[in-house]
Design a protein around this nucleic acid. Sequence first.
DNA 1: CGAATAATGGAACATACATTCCATTTTGCT
DNA 2: AGCAAAATGGAATGTATGTTCCATTATTCG
Lengths: 276, 276
Amino acid sequence: MTEQTLIQTAPDNVSELLEKLDASVENLPKRLKQCAVFTRRHLHLIAVSTVSEMAESAGVAPSVYMRFCQALGFSGYSTMQALFRAQFTEFRPNYQERMALLHKEGNVQTGRLLADFVESGHRSLLTISNTITSDHLEQIASALSRARVVHLVGLRRAFCVVSNMAYLFEKLGIPTHLHYGTGMLDSTGSIFDGDVLFAVTFSPFSEETIRLTEATSKRGIPVYGLTDSERCPMSEWAKEMLIAQEDELAGFRVPNAAITLTTALVVAVKAMKDQS
Amino acid sequence: MTEQTLIQTAPDNVSELLEKLDASVENLPKRLKQCAVFTRRHLHLIAVSTVSEMAESAGVAPSVYMRFCQALGFSGYSTMQALFRAQFTEFRPNYQERMALLHKEGNVQTGRLLADFVESGHRSLLTISNTITSDHLEQIASALSRARVVHLVGLRRAFCVVSNMAYLFEKLGIPTHLHYGTGMLDSTGSIFDGDVLFAVTFSPFSEETIRLTEATSKRGIPVYGLTDSERCPMSEWAKEMLIAQEDELAGFRVPNAAITLTTALVVAVKAMKDQS
DNA sequence: CGAATAATGGAACATACATTCCATTTTGCT
DNA sequence: AGCAAAATGGAATGTATGTTCCATTATTCG
């Protein structure tokens, strides 16, 4: 390490740090280069790791990592770490002020809104663990894994849930068919023996979804589904139903629970298929 | 704090911690409740903050926050912090082993699978608070609220995100148009001056989405977007970009963060429209 | 090849932090 | 109101972590 590198000033944002990293990586001695390469790949660890941890992961002694920080212009590891911790903490101290300010100017409290939805998401996810039994899920996964084609249906609020399932099934090479559009009832024609229908509907339950599942079930095709209420009429003809209630915030329900649950279901189906 | 609460064992994942938090928040003394309420809203800060910082932000003495950690079953602050740091530190590339393990015992452990995805969901939600600034969100919401029509585009993994947005916009009576299908580039014809395009794309970025946003932007139509990486080429021509990284589990990413974030965005747009 | 310089890693040191203790205040109960 | 039990916050303590030092090893260049 030459005088020159010591004179540099510390980067005060991540971009600058990356530039400096890339610029210096060539003319750095072996161990310091090791630090640079590792750090470049694991920037996110700095905020939550000690020097010793970073040094060990990079395969160098703590003192070497220390010198690496200084080569980048920082006074030490702590100052470099502060840069990454700032990302998380920056807006904390003035949170209260900020909110007051937003309120005052008559503006929408977007920050608060987002925090509320995040909170709501946590609550939705919590309910899954309480309501869903693994037996249940396993049974449905097993049925879907033996199906020739898995047919999917879900409208309105449920549509994003089944479109996510369709994407996953396709990605995993599992034959699937997503039903949508106005003439949906006609599409019963494309459902054959050996197929399975998985339907998602939330209250108030979509007329079309209900009708399609009823018609399909009466033809002897197994129907499974996901809903948010015991009262879902589909329960009558479905072999099994999953029930996941989303937390409500100001009349809105983000389908966190439904998407998480159905993703787990799809992965379980894939795992079962691989097994047999 | 009674004997009873001291006997509890420490939560070993975010879900358990949240449950314990919610369960205990009622019968906690004033200052400890203060800790609980603040912590519930600022979970993401624990990984990068000291006890003193958390205590100060919560408005209590460090020793009180200490006791709060113990009331939750942890031996101290450090152990609780470890839980949140693990999120960053844990190596996740062993999902191959994990999937293999799922098979070993003869049947797929669906219960465990679901619990893992739920945990992953919590983690995704935590990162939102870390990465998104409310200024940012507000700016985009403001732009969308002034648009004649909000055009939406997102394919593959992003499709369920935009389809959810489209549903919400329609439900709220905000003019919107969801672009999809093969001839998507042709649909630039339906985008006029005064409109805005909001695009969602995750790495590896969908060719069609990138092209549509570029073409639209070059016509002078403002483009905004959501992605999961700084390297998204769309950043070049987009006015503003939101970046939300989802937690990965066994190679799968459930779009919890993206859906939560965009829902908040839509609601913010509605609120702004109502205001003016 | 050998001297001079740079790089390295272990150990010593200093600081900041988590944790505990205890005097004081608050709360709950008779 | 007055006592007992619980809760609280500041100060004391011990530990973990960042940082520096220095003897040893590697590298460069005449």
